[in-house]
Amino acid sequence: MIRLRRLVTANVRTLRQALFVTTLAGLWELAARAGRLPALLLPPFSDVAVALATETASGEILGRLGFSLALVGVGLGLAVLSAVLVTAAAMSARIVSEWVQTLMAILHPLPGIAVLPIVILWLGTGYRSIAAVIWFAAVWPLVVNLHTGLRSVPATQIEVGRNLGLRGLHLVAEVLIPGAFPHILSGMRVAWARAWQALVAAEMVFGASGGEGGLGWFIYKRRFFMEIPGVFAGMIVIVLVGLIVERALFDSVEARTVRRWGMTQE
């Protein structure tokens, strides 16, 4: 019964949001069609929709999207791996923890894209550099959250674990990781968002390589050929992917875990 009501409430909200977005699109169309603004600056929404449809039909967008997602996957995967190693090192010794915290304070505010020139110098152009930028963008939020997550597990729960005879990795797996999960999840959220932004930015700044480019390169190329509806179409796809991952993946994982467990900090 409660579930049903929740479902209806959620859908009403979605409906309202959809209505709002549709209105915005309508206003956009009107503004563009009014003719005072050159179509080069603001193409009508319908043109963008057509571009989106054509580029999707031709397989162009899906190909680029696949490439982008694969790159983010590699970058994020490596980031998770290194965050785990760094955090493990930090947890093993106080001094390492201090180093990591200092390093975090220095490097965390640096946007991933800012390291691109150096990355190109070291790794050259191509997907390796983009993966490195994604890695850099994602690794710090992961380390920060993993670190705070592990530290925020109540001492009592750790002691219960020890009381039950858990030691070392068993204690980590049984108590620390689940206990830190809310932080781990929000770290993943931030890492994903930053990785996605870094990917698009990196591809646009150094233009990736033609056949191997992702959505950033798609937009970049359309910009240079002044296909403004295509630029907007690319942006829409980027937004959509962001939304889908955020809503379909993270929100549902959160609902199944952290919210179900009542481990939200609300």
Partner: peptide, 28 residues
């Protein structure tokens, strides 16, 4: 050191693992 021959029940309410149900807390 700590062992299952001496089990502690703490004062703190957060001694249960929040990600497990009541049953799972015991079963685990």
């Amino acid at each position: 050191g700590p062992g299952t021959d001496r089990m502690i029940v703490f004062q703190s309410f957060d001694q249960l693992f929040p990600w497990l149900t009541a049953l799972e807390n015991v079963a685990r």
